[in-house]
Each structure stands twice: as structure tokens, then as C-alpha cells.
Design a protein around this nucleic acid. Structure first.
Lengths: 121, 121
DNA sequence: CCTCTAGGTTGACATCTATCTAATCAGTGT
DNA sequence: ACACTGATTAGATAGATGTCAACCTAGAGG
């Protein structure tokens, strides 16, 4: 859809040096911002956390939905946003759908925000 | 303004364990999502990067603005968003205003996204 | 084939957001 | 006091976003 081909956040090798090391180029910023935007909602942040911290590294939608005071479609909408941001993968097994976090991307984002422990911020 | 008092992202001690370690509570997610939302825009991501990677750890608005194809007020708007998210500090010196990244918060966010390098994601 | 359940899709609506122009505020210097 | 420059604020507007009700799709199991 959008130019995710330019920067591959899925790769195991770091896509970009830390944000504080050198200026993030516009192309890169556009891709990275999509990921952060997906994290920029309390529901999605909790969803991702529930998925990433779940037993076996995966969570069923049937377990995620009742954890919120929201309707099914709304949860589904947020999960789609996480999927399209590349933060999670979905797999259908029978009636249920299981979500799994894409750890490589989380690492990329963490690395981007990492700063030297030199001077207190 | 909003309940930043509940969770202090400015503290040097980690506010929260990694997202993948245990589920982020709703209160915490609400605060953290504000920070990620601020990062969820390409312009703001570049601004923060320019500020954090600048010589001396600070950047003048007068240097930031011409780097974008946007008007002054728009840049000012984004800088305000970064300020209110607690990601940067502003200081006026004479005619100019200098911005500085809040490294402690960046570390908090990086720590939150950090995952064990165990299984490839 | 029918029905039941788990999820996802569509369409609508209220709210929020990114951007601009115009106006305002803060400092410098004449 | 006045004019000039840097930066923020205010108001307006087009577009994006979160939410829901209603509907549709995919499997499981009679």
C-alpha cells in the first residue's frame, strides 16, 4: 500500500540509527511515524502489550475483546491498525484468530528511541 | 493538564516494565499513548530527531522551520505537541527559542518497547 | 443445508488533527 | 516610541480517526 518497501522494519538488521544520533530522513520518518501512530492509542497499546506478554507469545481475539469496554468491531478495527502498521501478525486457527507481536519491529523502534546514558534528560 | 501526575515519565527510574513483559494497565497506557501519538507524525519525528541530534543537544526554531515545506505556525504547532507530550523542553534566549530533547523520557519509551533477543520476531 | 459462534467489514457520525492566514506577543535596535 | 524579526496564538477548514449498529464471512457441528 504505502512505501513500506523503502524501509524494511521487519529486517533483523537495524533499519536506522538512533533518532538522537543523526537526523531521520523524511522517507524514513514517514514509515516510522506509521508505527508510532499505531502505538499512539491507549487501546492499541494495551492490545499490543496483551499480545506480546501473553503465554506462548500469542493471544486470541476472544480473550482480547472482553478485556475492554468496547464493541467487537472497535477492537477489530484497532487490531487491523496494528496489523497494517506491521506490529502484529494474525493467524486463523479454526474459529479463532490468534495475534502475535512482531518482535523485530519492536526492537527497531526501541533502538530508534535509545539514547546514550550520558547526560540526564 | 492531563493526568501526567500519575505516571512520571521524567523520572530516571523506569516507570514501567517492557510492554512484552506484563500487560500495560489502562492508566499507564493512557499516559504512554500520548507520547507515542506525538511521535506518530513524520514532521514531529523529524523535529525531535533534529533537536536530539543537534550540536549541543539543542536546536533553534529558526533552524528547524526552514527544514520543512511548512509555515512557521505549523512548525510551532508541532513543537507545542512535542512539548505537551513531555518529549522536549523549550527555552527562550533573546529573540530565539531553543528546544532540547527530554532524554529520560525517550529512554522510558525505548525501555517499554525493548524485548528479549530470544526468538526472532 | 442449517444454525451457531468468532471475527471482520461497511457506513454513519462526532470528534480530533494538520494546515493555512491573520493577528498577537517577545526582544532587539534605532 | 517605533519598526523589525522570531515565535506563538487564534480562527477557519479539509481530512483523518474512534466508536457504534448493522451486516457479512468463515468454520464447526448437527
Amino acid at each position: 500500500m504505502h512505501s513500506l518497501a523503502l524501509i524494511d522494519l521487519t529486517a533483523d538488521t537495524p533499519c536506522c540509527p538512533p533518532l538522537a544520533e543523526r537526523r531521520v530522513p523524511a522517507d524514513t520518518a514517514a514509515v516510522l511515524a506509521l508505527a508510532f501512530k499505531a502505538l499512539g492509542d491507549p487501546v492499541r497499546l494495551q492490545l499490543l502489550s496483551m499480545i506480546a506478554s501473553a503465554e506462548g507469545g500469542e493471544a486470541c481475539v476472544c480473550d482480547l475483546t472482553p478485556a475492554f469496554d468496547l464493541t467487537g468491531p472497535t477492537i477489530s478495527h484497532h487490531l487491523k491498525a496494528l496489523r497494517e502498521a506491521g506490529l502484529v501478525d494474525a493467524e486463523r486457527r479454526g474459529t479463532w484468530v490468534y495475534y502475535r507481536a512482531r518482535l523485530a519491529i519492536l526492537r527497531q523502534l526501541a533502538a530508534l528511541l535509545t539514547v546514550e546514558p550520558t547526560h540526564a534528560g
